[in-house]
Design a protein around this nucleic acid. Sequence first.
DNA 1: TCGCAATTTGCAACCACTGTAGATTGGCAA
DNA 2: TTGCCAATCTACAGTGGTTGCAAATTGCGA
Lengths: 143, 143
Amino acid sequence: MRSPTELTAAFRGRGLKVTPQRQLIFRLLDGNTAHPSAEILFAAAEAQMPGISLRTVYQTLNDLAEMGELNQLDLGTGASRFDPNVGDHHHLVCVDCGAVRDVHVSGARQLTPDGGPQGFVLDAPHVIFRGHCSECADAAQRS
Amino acid sequence: MRSPTELTAAFRGRGLKVTPQRQLIFRLLDGNTAHPSAEILFAAAEAQMPGISLRTVYQTLNDLAEMGELNQLDLGTGASRFDPNVGDHHHLVCVDCGAVRDVHVSGARQLTPDGGPQGFVLDAPHVIFRGHCSECADAAQRS
DNA sequence: TCGCAATTTGCAACCACTGTAGATTGGCAA
DNA sequence: TTGCCAATCTACAGTGGTTGCAAATTGCGA
Ligand SMILES: [Mn+2]
Ligand SMILES: [Mn+2]
Ligand SMILES: [Zn+2]
Ligand SMILES: [Zn+2]
């Protein structure tokens, strides 16, 4: 995702308005590595702008995703997770608490389906490592 | 997933009953490579057993997944997809129609997060190739 | 400053899935 | 073979995540 300032220009360029709600969401996403859900972002937004609606958060996230500024990830954690890091990277997912961490995976780019793409036109592969984060593994240990 | 006959024994062994509904679902899944959703399986089941309930389909799928006979996949296609192939393999996903195809990916097993597992205890990695299947690519071409 | 298309909000609706309870039944014991 | 009863099935309500809609509001180019 580009910076809030650059996004402001990009939105205006598309005939989209730059509202205080959108600017707030730009700021909340800028540099955010937590892979937040819409609900989590809404909670953070509401703290700074009481009255903002969840619907507006969804709207803006969808706009950003459509513009390619945001990746929407479905990792089996219940809700979609939004990722302002649109560069080449992969994910660690805690199946207990839903935490998501970025990882680089050398060699992932070269991965290819054995026997060819089966007629598919393919994007770059995405590697998901599921497991238990240290907090959840510790909690399980203690019990 | 094991064969319907073997599953019958496995269910009885766990104190679970083998009902006509469950047997039908076993058969519908046996050798099924379509990665069906619960709704799709329900439609197929209803055709052979009018009156079967969607709830029962979900129940049985959850039981099979809990027993490790089935993998539940979250591929961002709306609903969970169920996979009787629990061996080591990966997936091609059409972002247009939701088609899922099995692929083997040599080298996938050895993939590792650069810089270590970050404190996570990890399962085997899962590689997802998103793209457009030949049918959907053709349809886009023609339009 | 004005006008209006874009946006926001509130709320209903939708989809995938789960909880519940009463009716039904598979499968063991007698 | 029958009877019992825990397991199951179905119907339906409820939940969580997300989208559709319409009336009120507002950013921003003219
Ligand atoms: Mn990420
Ligand atoms: Mn598969
Ligand atoms: Zn965790
Ligand atoms: Zn397709």
